[in-house]
């Protein structure tokens, strides 16, 4: 490792302490990150807390079961003169260790069901964005905002040039050198990010123009597949302005690893300004929405 690598490791160790306790809304994954991030939307803590609770439950059960196993392995060794007993049944014990897991499961199921129900409720959204996956880029179309429909604001979003050049086989370029400010953005940056307002319930309608993709920004707490011929819906309400990064999460061909997602969350005022700019530019042909091509399975080639 270079000295830069060592420095990185030290910053990493610092980030680790924060990241593993999830007290910060992370915009992107950090080195040595151990746990899921809390996210930056109103719903994302549901996934985060459920992850922590179930991990804790599993850890406690694991300590008890493996503990009993290790005690057995030390106490009942032939080399210590242990003589095998004959019993092979104990109804009381069996009833207990069937019932207790059931009770634990009911608790977990209760928590998960509540979280899931709130996730599925896309009503009352103040904004709609249509997301379309393509091999290997994303398209965003703004449908409506605060009850007003938006025309002709839509654009393609694909891997940034610096990452794209660096990721070529034998490019000789250093992935660690791909940065925006202090943030390492290798394969997690795009040419044109999705811009949305903070504190707004945004409904995402998600589909695909060719094969199945999956739209995933960990800060929202969820991912959902982009499927040709099907329109999926999900919602997010970001609580903090910032830049949030994600990736395609369903294998979609050779460049599956190279179609990141970047969401820039702005204050409502900044967003209104940005949207107005986009609307004035929208007469330019560059912003004309491409028609989604229907999947022609036999035609295309992955390679």
């Amino acid at each position: 490792m270079t000295s830069g690598g060592i420095r990185r490791s030290f910053t990493a160790a610092a980030a680790l302490a924060l990241a593993s306790f999830g007290s910060v809304a992370l915009a992107a994954p950090g080195p040595w990150q151990l746990n899921m991030e809390r996210g930056a939307s109103t719903w994302s803590p549901v996934a985060y807390h459920l992850n922590n609770i179930s991990l804790a439950v599993c850890t406690v059960i694991g300590v008890l079961v493996f503990g009993a196993m290790f005690v057995a392995m030390f106490r009942f060794r032939k080399s210590r003169g242990a003589v095998a007993e004959k019993w092979s049944h104990n109804t009381m014990v069996e009833v207990i260790w069937t019932t207790i897991p059931v009770l634990i499961l009911i608790t977990l199921a209760y928590l998960a069901t509540g979280g899931l129900t709130s996730w599925a409720d896309t009503t009352g959204s103040q904004m709609t964005v249509k997301v379309t996956g393509y091999q290997w880029k994303w398209r965003y179309d703004y449908v409506d905002y605060m009850g007003k429909s938006i025309d002709k604001v839509g654009f393609m979003s694909k891997l940034d040039t610096q990452s794209d050049q660096t990721r070529q086989l034998g490019s000789g370029m250093d992935p660690f050198a791909v940065k925006v400010g202090d943030e390492s953005t290798y394969l997690l940056n795009v040419d044109k990010p999705l811009v949305v307002p903070v504190d707004t319930k945004i409904r995402f309608v998600i589909t695909s123009g060719d094969v199945i993709h999956s739209w995933w920004v960990p800060a929202t707490g969820w991912k959902i597949d982009a499927i040709p011929g099907i329109i999926n819906a999900a919602w997010a309400n970001f609580t903090t302005p910032g830049t949030y990064r994600g990736q395609c999460a369903e294998l979609c061909g050779q460049d599956h690893g190279f179609m990141p997602i970047v969401v820039v969350v702005k204050s409502k005022a900044d967003f209104a300004k940005w949207l107005a700019e986009q609307e004035t530019q929208s007469t330019a042909p560059a912003a004309t929405p491409q028609t989604a091509q229907v999947a022609t399975p036999a035609g295309g080639k992955q390679g």
């Binding site: 994954p29 040595w32 151990l34 992850n51 390492s184 953005t185 960990p218 990736q247 294998l251 690893g257």
Partner: peptide, 22 residues
């Protein structure tokens, strides 16, 4: 496990430098 929790998708041939250590 850590890579997945930190956000590394499966079936990708290359990844962000945050995932390099693990």
């Amino acid at each position: 496990h850590f890579l997945g929790l930190a956000g590394m998708p499966r079936r990708i041939p290359d990844y962000n430098v945050a995932f390099a250590n693990f």
